[in-house]
Structure formats: C-alpha cells, structure tokens
C-alpha cells in the first residue's frame, strides 16, 4: 500500500493546504472569542434572578445543544439571506456570504456550550466573594467584571481551551457551505490528483499533532493551576 506513497503530491500541495489551515485557525479563533463573549452574556442571563432573562437564555442553550452543528451551519447559510430579504424588504439584498454565515453559526453554536462552562465557573466562585464585593459598595456590573469573572475564568481556562480544540476539529464542517478549510483543501487536492491515501493520512496527522500538542499544554496549565490553588 505504501510502496507507491507519493510525498511529492503533499509537498506541491503545501501552499494550498497552508491557506486552508490559516482559514481553519482563523475561524476557530474568531468563533472562540465570539462564543466566549456571547457565552458569558448567556451565562449571566441564566444565573439572573429575573425569569425574563434566565428563561430565554436557558431555552436557547437547550435548543442549540440538541441540534447537530451541521444543521446550524445550514440554517444560517440558507435562512439568514431570507431573513435579511424579508426584514429589509429588498428582494435583491445580498447575503452575507458563506464565511460570515459560518462564523455566525459557529459563534452562536459554541456560545451555548461555552455558556454552560462559564455558568459552572461563575458558580464555583464562593458566595463570600460576592458578598465581599457588594459590601465594599461595588454594583452588580463592577462585582461581576472585577471580582467574579476574573476568578471564574481562571478556574475555567483549561476546559474552555479543551472545548476550543474540539471547535477547531469541527470547523472542518464548513465544506457544506462551500468554504475551503484545511480539511477541504486536503480533500480537493486528494480528488484532483487521485491521491486519497496520502492527503487524508497527512490531514489526520496534522490534526493529531495540533490537537495533541494543544491538549498537552492544557494539561500542563491545569496542573499548574491546581498546584497554585492548594
């Protein structure tokens, strides 16, 4: 099987694959930042004593978490242009393009997962810390941003990063809306040159190296935090 393994194919495809990798990493990073921001808001809403905030956030999180990611990507790609047309009343209104629709889909999807992590992180901050912040005269916003969230995020960093590693793998789903990420690039070359074994093995190897290395660093980070806490 490996007797006719052709490394040349991979070498010549490297620039194209590199472009795909930059796309994957970029999308991961943007969706992660957006997801954590939105997830934080959702978590604060879910923890709010006001039902008008906590119920919609809870419903959103439970809905999104019950739907496959690939469906969410489809929805945003096909439904957002329709929504834009209906809202603007302009039947010729342009869509936002596959990249932004995918970015929004990933952000909204990941936000639901980040929300649950961040909610647990906020709840892990002792009640006494909240009392101490309020006793000093800080208001809700100040107590949250200056005292609670910094501690919550410190506890959450390992699991947030782990979730982001999975997000990185999931970005390969963007092929369904015609975008070319790393996986898509490998797939295109593989079919063009008829070199499925080489390209898919190479893609798997690269995913493995990146994700394994990242997981390793997350573990080290976690160990360091645990030591610091005792």
């Amino acid at each position: 099987m490996f007797s006719d393994f052709d490394f040349e194919v991979i070498v010549s495809a490297l620039p194209f694959l590199w472009e795909g990798m930059m796309f994957s990493l970029g999308l991961t990073l943007l969706a992660m930042l957006g997801g954590i921001f939105l997830g934080t808001l959702l978590a604060l809403m879910r923890l709010s004593p006001f039902k008008i905030l906590s119920y919609p956030a809870g419903a959103y999180v439970n809905l999104i978490r019950s739907i496959p990611l690939i469906l969410v990507i489809f929805w945003f790609y096909f439904l957002i242009p329709i929504a834009v047309k209906n809202i603007s009343g302009n039947p010729y209104a342009a869509g936002i393009g596959p990249f932004y629709s995918a970015l929004i889909a990933f952000t909204m999807f990941e936000a639901a997962y980040y929300c649950e992590i961040i909610r647990a992180g906020i709840q892990s901050v002792p009640r006494g810390q909240v009392h101490a912040a309020y006793a000093l005269g800080l208001n809700y916003r100040q107590a949250t941003t200056l005292v609670i969230l910094p501690q919550a995020f410190r506890n959450m960093i390992p699991i947030l990063l782990t979730t982001s590693i999975i997000l990185f793998q999931d970005t390969s789903l963007v092929y369904v809306v015609g975008l070319t990420d790393f996986m898509g690039a490998a797939s295109k070359i593989a079919r063009r040159d008829g070199r499925l074994v080489e390209l898919y093995l190479f893609a798997a190897l690269i995913y493995f190296i990146i994700c394994f290395t990242a997981s390793y660093f997350v573990k080290r980070l976690q160990a360091r935090y645990n030591v610091g806490r005792n």
């Binding site: 002792p126 006494g128 810390q129 009392h131 101490a132 912040a133 309020y134 006793a135 000093l136 005269g137 800080l138 208001n139 005292v147 910094p150 501690q151 410190r154």
Partner: peptide, 21 residues
C-alpha cells in the same frame, strides 16, 4: 442606593474574602 450605603459601612468576614486574583 445600596452600593452607596454599603460603601459607608465596612464589613469583615469570617473567611476574610480578600480577592485572591
């Protein structure tokens, strides 16, 4: 205005509750 009222009353807790970060 609770924040204002609280800011005028100091409070010390059993478990100190200094901000560890």
């Amino acid at each position: 205005d609770l924040p204002k009222l609280r800011s005028r009353i100091g409070m010390v807790f059993q478990n100190f509750e200094l901000f560890p970060h």
